[in-house]
């Protein structure tokens, strides 16, 4: 099926994009198009106006600055995959980038577009939650910083306003003894997650877990944190028993639905297993990896 007809605007600056969003009637932002184009074609989205942000060169970046890893709206999944910054230090980023979709989709789709899409099966939402990330939005009233925790409302629904453009998502640069990881279960290469878990641990000098975060994919109405499991981990020393307990708690906190990929009980069991594996990798990376000091 063809998309319904629409006007195509191609701003070259953020200011221009924001004023288009404010002045036009019912605009939709087009970024990598890897979710929006099929939605337009199936007429699940029928905007009269499309504001295509691909020409705003100032949004094409991925770098560390002022204590954050900053990902501009035009950084593609492949840019993360190929970036020299993304190594064990950003373990969960290194894990997730090659697991999103397939090479062609990664060449066009953006991290920010995925976050904006707010598909509970999307991988990046969990990473952002696990890293206490933030969404930076520009609208007619200026810039707004939305903690990832407060961003996702429902499937495909966020706290973003129709007249707002996300310019960046960012996460704090890792603490000296921080490790993170992402584990994803999928039916076949290139698929969305059946279940996924991002884990991040920060250890203190005595190897006690200072901060624990778990972000879950595809097992609730949005990407979601497993806060009971996090609380159980903090103040303890990493061990496989502790991670088993945390995995069990995360499974209890998840709310998966039965579908053609598996029933809810199976998916809960998978959350348990994936959480344990992600925590194991995160702990190893927190303990073993020598940190770059970049703050």
């Amino acid at each position: 099926m063809k998309s319904a007809p629409f006007e195509h605007h191609e701003p070259t600056t953020v200011d221009e994009a924001v004023s288009l969003l404010e002045s036009l009637d019912g605009p939709t932002i087009l970024s990598g198009g890897q979710s929006l184009v099929p939605m337009l074609r199936f007429r699940l989205a029928n905007p009269d106006v499309v504001v295509d942000i691909n020409g705003i060169d100032s949004l094409d970046y991925l770098h560390e600055e002022d204590g954050y890893l900053r990902i501009g709206a035009l950084a593609r999944h492949a840019d993360v995959e190929d970036s020299s910054l993304i190594d064990e230090t950003y373990g969960s980023f290194a894990d997730v980038a090659p697991l999103v979709a397939d090479p062609q989709v990664r060449n066009r789709g953006t991290v920010v577009g995925s976050v904006a899409q707010a598909d509970p099966k999307g991988d990046w939402g969990s990473i952002l939650l696990a890293h206490d990330g933030e969404v930076i939005a520009r609208g007619p009233d200026g810039e707004r910083t939305i903690p990832a925790d407060e961003f996702f409302l429902l499937p495909y629904d966020t706290t973003l306003d129709d007249t707002e453009l996300i310019t960046e998502v960012r996460v704090p640069t890792p603490a000296p003894r921080e490790g993170s990881a992402y584990h994803k279960l999928k039916r076949k290469t290139g698929d969305y997650a059946m279940a996924g878990v991002a884990a991040r641990l920060v250890l203190d000098d005595d190897d006690v877990i200072e901060t624990a975060r778990l972000g879950m994919t595809a097992v609730d109405i949005t990407n979601a944190r497993a806060t009971d499991a996090e609380a159980h981990l903090e103040g303890e020393r990493p061990s496989s028993e502790l991670f088993e307990e945390a995995g069990g708690l995360a499974a209890e906190e998840s709310n998966p639905e039965s579908d053609e990929h598996g029933d809810a009980g199976y998916k809960e069991r998978m959350v348990d297993v994936l959480a344990q594996r992600a925590l194991g990798d995160a702990a190893e990376r927190a303990g073993l990896v020598k940190r770059r000091v970049s703050q």
Partner: peptide, 22 residues
């Protein structure tokens, strides 16, 4: 719908799915 890759072309040297781009 972006799933099969039969429409893959190289755009400026990069493989993309030409059904997912205007």
């Amino acid at each position: 719908t972006g799933n099969c890759g039969a429409c893959t072309i190289l755009k400026d040297g990069e493989p993309i799915k030409s059904c997912l781009m205007f």
